[in-house]
Design a protein around this nucleic acid. Sequence first.
DNA 1: CATGCAATTGCATTCGAATGCGATGAGCCG
DNA 2: CGGCTCATCGCATTCGAATGCAATTGCATG
Lengths: 352, 352
Amino acid sequence: MTVQVGEKAQKSTRAKWKRATSYDVAELAGVSQSAVSRVFQDGASASKQMRKRVMAAASKLGYRPNAIARGLITRRSNMVAVIMSQQTNLYYPEVLVQLTQRFSNHRIRVLLFTLKSEGDIDSTLEQVLQFRVDGIVTAAMLSGAQLATVQEANIPIVFYNRSLADIPSNSVRCDQEEGERWLVAQLFGSGHRTFAIVSGPEDSSVSTERTTGALRMLREHGVDGVTIATGDYGYDSGRAAFARIVDRHGGPPDAVIAANDVMAIGCIDEARESFGLNVPGDVSIVGFDGVGPANYAAYDLSTVRQPVERMTEAAVSMLIDRIENPELSAEKRVFSGERIRGSSAEFAADPG
Amino acid sequence: MTVQVGEKAQKSTRAKWKRATSYDVAELAGVSQSAVSRVFQDGASASKQMRKRVMAAASKLGYRPNAIARGLITRRSNMVAVIMSQQTNLYYPEVLVQLTQRFSNHRIRVLLFTLKSEGDIDSTLEQVLQFRVDGIVTAAMLSGAQLATVQEANIPIVFYNRSLADIPSNSVRCDQEEGERWLVAQLFGSGHRTFAIVSGPEDSSVSTERTTGALRMLREHGVDGVTIATGDYGYDSGRAAFARIVDRHGGPPDAVIAANDVMAIGCIDEARESFGLNVPGDVSIVGFDGVGPANYAAYDLSTVRQPVERMTEAAVSMLIDRIENPELSAEKRVFSGERIRGSSAEFAADPG
DNA sequence: CATGCAATTGCATTCGAATGCGATGAGCCG
DNA sequence: CGGCTCATCGCATTCGAATGCAATTGCATG
């Protein structure tokens, strides 16, 4: 019963040591457990001296509130799940960092789930739900059934750069199609007439949007017979794709539209190195994303940059709003990309 | 008392719906709560028909075990914390992805913590401990006191690419110094005599190791008066650093040793674009890391690649071993980097 | 000094699942 | 058919903190 300062030293020596609980602190401070609990809350009522006594006992014991136990009783884990496909994170590390930091400002932690492909979502989702996260941000596509599962569990969810047509759901995305249309317009406006496209993985909805966006715009301009090569968003696949395009097309096209910057860079290197072509003299090449290597001097890509800062901020606030008020109706926010005129493509003159 | 199939439909309509618990499932299945619990465990004993009844009731109610509640009673959250400084994740997204996936294979989830600088660790650490994670992987440096706090809480921790001298602790790292020594040896062996260094942020221990490693080797070769410029690991800072070096050195040195690949690329671009220099004709430039852009054709860096796969695997298994057996003594694993001879530097001829 | 009101504090219960222990029953062997 | 073992199941308790409600205290007011 005699709890002393020496107690603390014993902690490290005793073989199976239990971490201090609010009861231990209460006992040492000579108060009730509820008092301890209240001292460690924000809005709870506790007198100054109570605070002092409890804090003293707590630091003596090295007590820390147990977030797990708290989560059980409050039904709030203070954790959100972030689901990313492998590629998403490899090419947008910023997205993850920013989401994490912004959530962190609201005292919310990120539980990370990565997918090898966008295929094995079901098992992942099961895990997410078991952990009783307060909300979900997903950069991977969900099927209607999967979304229904999440909604049945009453967990708010925000889609990042994807959205389900016809189903009310929250999403934040960059307008891929608009961006591609601008790129095509610039290319076409400056005289390019034969085109090729390097698409991303087939299970990437972002790639699909970009590719079909470009194709649609091209068709509107009467361009047909566009060569399409598939890549995996990686540098090497970009190089290989360019080689295949030249092969199938019987020479380089006027312009190549890659589904992301990294593959565009691959195309540039392949064009220059393996085919001795000038970029943009012999062939114009454009990408999409506007991150990292896109503005290295050797490439200086013409591309569309996603406004990552505003998008992550939107996703975070949108999710938190729904956590705090589940009745809020669904909302989709679409951001225009920032148009970047690099030297990797011959573009129409700047208007104005 | 009459629980029917229609029950399920009510869920979505009832305003405040509680998620199904093991008691609900037990009642519907006409068994005890413990039975339900056992069915949802791995090694627990439950008869075939019991399983069937329980699973039927569970899926009817959309029941999912509550990982939070489970964590409270088992004292295992099945979560580990991964602490990264912002830069670490921006330049090694692979590290995070691989850690996450490897832990995931062991049914362990990653709770992510990112640091703006390596400064605000204390508050982060407090959060980590409150969440009662089973273990920690940190790619940020901890002070002795901070490490002590973690160890007092009996939480296994593994350092990724850093380690505390003189203190027994678990770490997995790439031998930065060895790598730098090799780079210097190659440069010196091929006739370079004047050197400059682009270091990373001052609070980055990795940068410090690399920089001092290079400096030590240079001194052993009798090279002194090395110009040092500081960057922030980013592309622009690499370009700026090169300009400052030329300025202070009164012309380009024979070789520039950058603390990472991205800054090395910045140096190359600045040398070529702003100074019209040939790389490696007029100046050799080497980096460190060996990821992503390092092997783009335009740069083709000479660098040292960190064996990320083996390192993450080592970190994961080391941590899991300690979670399962806390008595295990500390261990440090050091991996040699993979030596890459690119064309960004004139190197001595390949031996043998 | 009595009364009223508000701020503190303690008691008892609750969140949802895991588990030691005892009870039950099935299956097996002699 | 008796006895024994082993698998299976239920009961009751436990993990650690939050919270509604009641009790207590402090303070101001008439």
